[in-house]
Design a binder for these strands. Structure first.
Lengths: 311, 311
DNA sequence: ATGCATCTTGAAAACGTTATCCCACACACT
DNA sequence: AGTGTGTGGGATAACGTTTTCAAGATGCAT
């Protein structure tokens, strides 16, 4: 009876509605979720590696804004790239009867997420994707973004381009590396493994790997860093050696940063539409709730090379 | 029976526990929360202005880590400093039967929060505080932090120190300004209103107000910016004018930033222990749940002046 | 051996909703 | 006029726990 749209004459509906407002009646969301079967329990789960990563913070805002607009609440969880934590939070979210879960899988064959999908709960993967399994997903064209960045560096005359990658069992990292190789091959340049280092997406590894690359002789004349936190680490290493950007070494980072403009020099980056990714994922999930049998949707958004002065 | 500690012989308890594990039984958190009265519903609410602000992101991690350790889930909400949104989310959280709510009030006399406290639900205010009402709170010694920053600038020889403040109905902003005045008075310097601007804590206002200050003649030789996002805006304005830090103008920001070290020059800041604030607040809330009648606790953590090279 | 007290245990109520079922009533058609 | 049909609305079951209550079992003392 409390649900507005039902087989009730409008008059009665308005009467009830008026009484609800008058008495200040607020339905209890817990009781509602307990009883209500699939669909609109007005709660959705979001599991990200770390809310302190500005990329995921922006993505989370996208999700949350859509949720707010539809009177959904969001339960936010940080997995720290830890499978045990991810599994724990998935169990919590299922136990909380969320309508669906948005998450970037920890690896391309994340068994915990695959099990979750098999359970039938609506899932939308964001940013990263799984090799197997059919689910709605929103991703960014990482390969193309990386290609444009490296292509830009090569056109500026760079030949030895250092690459600081992430874990190779993550789809984004692998695709960005492919984009790097695409660009090198396009310009008939050799892909030299010694200029490619694999990190873990964290700031400390960005710094460590940059120092390794700067030890090489000859050192790279340009650096392409595959995520935001590692870029910060790379800048630290470069400043520590008193190198000048872009005079001694050019830098492009993947992921834009709110403070990229405030750096000296302002940092050239491949900007991912993180907010849009979150927004699209939430909208996809809401659509799936309305129509559980609808076609599986894959969305691929385009990143953009933002030219500033670090090249 | 499922609750471990009860008046049951240990043998039976172990037997039941073993069966639970064997069958993979997971209690439904929704049903549990519906029935269970005050105390341990294993859910807590966190309302912050914006998760994209690194200070609040760090604070949120502190809350979440404590929650995770106690098998609590966290429902995170962004108020955008908007009273309507804050009120909506408070209603949602109450309707979700959270055990308690952690939040920084939007202003010093936030009626929405006061009403919430009156309702009896445990509340812990963080960062900012209310002038009236008795509740657990965790704050930072803003006045002292600001004093140390300005004192440092004066000792370096600065006399015209620009202050970029936030909204004056927020306790943190007011206290930091008092710290600024304390330091000026301590050194017998006049507090000149034209060097003090009030913004809204956002990046754009930091840039705009910095430009205003730089227009003055004589312009300030140093700038003290009262939060992280406005500091980023200030740096943008300074770079746009091709001024050199610290040669042309010195800068100290309130709030540390993960990338402060990577800036050129590295930024001197007043570091707030944001993670600790979140952690302490969550622990305070959990203690309150165990002992609802316990004494109200006020915690004041110390910020730290982190000297880098921007002064 | 019986009575009282304590401890266990199983059954049933409660939490606040939504889903389901069924009856009554009105309308239309035969 | 009788019967079929559709629809509104009220009563009741159900969701999965915890809490409460009562009864049964055990133990100790008289």
């Amino acid at each position: 009876m409390i649900n507005n749209s039902d087989k009730v004459v409008p008059e009665t509906r308005d009467l009830v509605h008026k009484a609800m407002v008058k008495l200040g009646y607020k339905p209890n969301r817990v009781a509602r979720r307990l009883r209500q079967k699939g669909g609109m329990r007005h709660l959705l789960g979001l599991i990200i590696p770390d809310i302190q990563n500005p990329f995921f913070a922006e993505l989370a805002r996208g999700v949350e804004d859509v949720a707010y607009a539809h009177k959904f609440a969001v339960m936010l969880c940080n997995s720290d790239e830890n499978l045990k934590k991810e599994e724990f939070y998935i169990e919590v979210l299922q136990s909380e009867s969320v309508d669906g879960i948005i998450l970037p899988p920890i690896s391309e064959c994340d068994l915990v997420v695959l099990k979750l999908i098999k359970s039938g709960l609506p899932v939308v993967t964001v940013d990263r994707s799984l090799t197997h399994g059919a689910m709605d997903k929103v991703e960014v064209d990482n390969r193309r973004g990386a290609f444009e960045a490296v292509d830009h560096l090569i056109k500026l005359g760079h030949r030895r381009i250092g690459l600081i990658a992430g874990r190779m069992n993550v789809s984004t990292s692998r695709e960005r590396r492919l984009g790097y190789e695409d660009a090198m091959m396009e310009h008939k340049l050799p892909v030299q493994p010694e200029y490619i280092r694999g990190g873990d997406f964290k700031q400390a590894s960005g710094r460590a790997m940059t120092e390794e690359l700067l030890e090489l002789s000859p050192p790279p004349t340009a650096l392409f860093v595959l995520n935001n936190l590692m870029t910060v680490g790379a800048l630290e290493a470069i400043h520590r050696r008193k190198l000048r950007i872009p005079h001694d070494i050019a830098v492009i980072g993947f992921d834009d940063l709110p403070w990229a403009e405030a750096l000296d020099p302002p940092l050239t980056v491949v900007r991912q539409p993180a907010y849009e990714v979150g927004r699209a994922a939430a909208e996809l999930l809401l659509r799936r709730l309305e129509n559980p049998a609808g076609a599986v949707t894959h969305l691929k958004l385009l990143p953009k090379l933002v030219l500033r002065n670090s090249c």
